[in-house]
Nucleic acid binder design. Structure first.
Lengths: 206, 206
DNA sequence: CGATCTGGATTATGATCGTTATCTATAAGG
DNA sequence: CCTTATAGATAACGATCATAATCCAGATCG
């Protein structure tokens, strides 16, 4: 007797009501929607039903794609970490060729501040992720390492250790700064924070 | 006909089932409990009933103290901002006499990382507050200004503007750094972030 | 083409939430 | 000391949530 697994269907092996390709696209649509909306509303700020509706679906099919809401959240966080790279790729920008100033201009910007849904999960979800379980924290820790390494490659310094120090300082200041700028209800103060942080980050290669 | 207001009773003016002093102490107990637990669990991470239970009460009396849960949250955030000063006062430390290194040792520490409930709301609730309404954001913006001014008074620099720049950089890096350190599931990486940030902050007066 | 079984829709379920109604004991005013 | 009205307890209400049960249309396989 064959037991059919709904979660990880093998293409072309089992009969189905929608093509495997359609399901995969639906899956991606759900994850992408969640990735954006969760950055906007927090990891617990939006429910399964609303997320599905935003993806153009209804609640019913949810558990054909994910074992639990937590599973979607994990995938959405992963997707959020990848989105930065995907966005650059879509614009034809090579991340390796970006200078520290390029990174600063993008990251520490009013646009990034005002559009958390398209932005860095470290700026949008710091508190939420720090309260999350091993799964989400593990994904984020990987993201941290990649970000440090990428920034370190753009930093100046006598040796690798110094470049890494600068990268960590810059990244902590960037994520913290955008977070504080989002909090401030005083636009002038918010802009002052952004400008100050931007200058520091843009200068780590000097 | 006199209309009796339950929310803001005037002492000695109206009859009551508990002494006004008792009510005030209860009120403070609820706010203090909430202030700690909300920093630990996020602004939406714990319910009214659980908060009351932790304060040694039941749900019933809640609305004799607060018009809504949001009102409690606002008071709790305010209390969280004041707690830093109250803690120092309890230890007999004069905030004005603390050097940048003193601040760095306290703020960018493993203890602060591991005890968000007793720590800075900017580190524990950045994301949550940035998604909150005008009320919470306004309270936080005041807190921001005070923190910047306090740190600027400890920073070195040719003029006020430069001292303020350093204060903003240091504070953004501190809040961001503790946030990232809390996220990291790799203890070594977490400690590296703290050490790096601590060094920068401790050095803003040189 | 007919049998099969899955993706997704509709609807139900049980838990949990903020909030409210009702009750009781008691501190204060006259 | 007796009336009054409030702090807080118990319990209920309606909304919202994650999850599950059921159903159906249709893609795939033999």
């Amino acid at each position: 007797m064959i037991i059919y697994m709904s979660q990880e269907a093998v293409p072309g092996r089992f009969p189905m009501g929608r093509s495997q390709l359609e399901k995969q696209k639906t899956h991606e649509k759900i994850v992408e929607t969640a990735s954006k909306r969760l950055r906007e509303e927090g990891l617990e700020g939006i429910g399964v039903a609303d997320l599905m509706k935003e993806a153009g679906l209804t609640v019913g099919g949810f558990y054909k794609h994910f074992a639990s809401r937590d599973d979607l959240v994990a995938e959405a966080i992963q997707s959020a970490f990848d989105s930065w790279g995907r966005k650059l790729e879509a614009e034809g920008v090579n991340p390796a060729e970006m200078t520290a100033a390029d990174v600063a201009d993008r990251y520490v910007s009013a646009y990034h501040r005002d559009n958390p849904g398209e932005g860095c999960p470290f700026a949008a979800l710091t508190s939420d992720i720090s309260r999350s379980g091993e799964k989400a924290r593990g994904i984020a820790t990987d993201g941290l390492r990649r970000n440090f390494a990428s920034l370190a490659s753009k930093a100046a310094g006598a040796d690798d250790r110094e470049r890494r120090r600068r990268a960590i300082m810059a990244f902590a200041m960037m994520t913290g700064g955008v977070g504080l700028a989002r909090i401030s209800s005083d636009e002038e103060l918010s802009a002052e924070i952004l400008a100050t942080v931007r200058d520091f980050v843009a200068g780590i290669d000097k």
